[in-house]
Design a binder for these strands. Structure first.
Lengths: 251, 251
DNA sequence: CGGGATATTGAGTTAGTTCAACACAGGTGG
DNA sequence: CCACCTGTGTTGAACTAACTCAATATCCCG
């Protein structure tokens, strides 16, 4: 069960935002940083399993992930779950309820998670006065659409082995851009159930397929740590092509 | 094989745009319409099977569908195809190549298709001077993300019968909002192969499942015409809930 | 020590696939 | 006007990737 949320110790100033030091993000000018600092209404810390946003509700907030992992998902009435994607630092959460009235998916924390909180009613100011930031928001949504395109291709047309190979490579490269990897290794706070639900597979089959990938010497997956042993092999299996997109927006 | 494109007879002025008469679109003010008229660089007419945008290329244009159907899709090297979604009047095509460098999916015309063409290099002006329109662009991308979420849930977690029920209802309601339906009937310019590729199913199984839905008296599907006979039944099957979103943006 | 997740493995089942044949319609060229 | 071809839809039969069920193993935590 989700644990309760904790109040943050002390919010980080946008001027000192850790994400800015990563080269995968675009540089913001002074004005933009100032605006974002004022726009940011606080921070929100959640523990694994905590519910961040709920399908069917309207959130007064818009979030950006400062650190940690989360995932978006949808449920069917009988409990079947589909994970739509995994969210990492820099990703936007809850824009849907800013743009439409209510959420059509839920979001849950996977790891210890720190979020920047923005009041959705002020999103309009951003569009009115900071067109570059508005464009960044569009950029982020478009990128997330791209990831969904990839997932849909996987779930619709790839075999179990191909899906797993593809997802693991994708996660690895996304994490790598955020400097969350150590060499070929990456800490993934997922259970196999999470993988299964993201891939549209059963838990048992996911487990067995992971095993054959291990036996073929492609990966090592143990205690939430993933090691990519044969990147070429995996990429060939999955027709994976890393998405070399230019510097991405912060917020 | 795709036929060649035809030059448009005479572009329609945005002031006289047919879409504006539909109540599902938000009303634009005079300034916005004037800007859009200037932004619009022409029209583009395509016939069924024509390729509109190609994965791996960069399109200098951004399109909006004025009339007709298209679909976005991705291919695997061995020819497996996943249709990502179907696009109808009012939908935006090719934003990805305006936001990133190149397309990661292709777009093909399903029916006779009329597109409004906008030069992507002027998209920035729109963001700089027409924040409401910029917000509309974001709205459109976010909505398309939502549709993808639904598809991913279907393909990942629903049975063949549920998937078909869900897709047909969705198409019907989307078309209905655009006043493209006649009572419970709708002309769909698809082959069963299109349905199969959108649902992640084989052609044969799609055919058989359509047949059982017909036999149960839920639908009639003949010569590209779909009739919804038992909307309640289909909705129950698919856990379908029509997405009652407020007026949507034009362009 | 006991209870609740998570992971692993085997065995039997099934939804959906592939292969193949055939029906039907429209379109073309002789 | 007919013969042919191609794209689409339909149906049966055999096959298989992935599923469900079930038992067991681990590990962590209170």
């Amino acid at each position: 069960m989700p644990r309760t949320h904790t109040a943050p110790p002390k919010p980080i100033k946008c001027t000192a935002c850790q994400l800015k030091t990563l080269k995968c993000f675009r540089r913001l000018d002074e004005d933009e940083v100032k605006f974002l600092s004022a726009f940011k209404s606080g921070e929100f810390v959640a523990e694994p399993g905590a519910s961040i946003l709920q399908e069917g509700t309207r959130s007064p907030h818009l979030y950006t992930i400062l650190s940690g992992w989360a995932f978006r998902y949808k449920l069917l009435p009988d409990g079947r779950r589909q994970i739509l994607n995994f969210a990492m630092p820099g990703d936007l959460l809850g824009l849907q309820s800013s743009v439409f009235s209510e959420m059509k998916h839920s979001v849950e924390a996977l790891s210890h998670l720190v979020l920047c909180v923005f009041p959705r009613e002020r999103l309009w100011e951003l569009y009115a006065h900071y067109p570059a930031l508005a464009f960044d928001v569009t950029w982020l949504v478009a990128r997330s659409e791209r990831l969904l395109d990839e997932s849909l291709l996987s779930v619709g047309r790839r075999s179990a082995r191909e899906r797993i190979a593809h997802l693991l490579l994708l996660l690895f490269h996304r994490a790598s851009a955020l400097e969350m990897t150590q060499g070929r290794r990456l800490t993934l706070p997922f259970t196999q159930q999470h993988l299964a639900d993201a891939l549209g597979l059963s838990l048992v089959h996911t487990n067995k397929t992971l095993k054959t990938l291990s036996e073929h010497g492609c990966i090592r997956w143990k205690d939430g740590r993933l090691e990519i042993l044969d990147e070429k092999g995996l990429a060939a299996l999955a027709d994976y092509e890393s998405d070399t997109v230019q510097p991405r927006p912060i917020l």
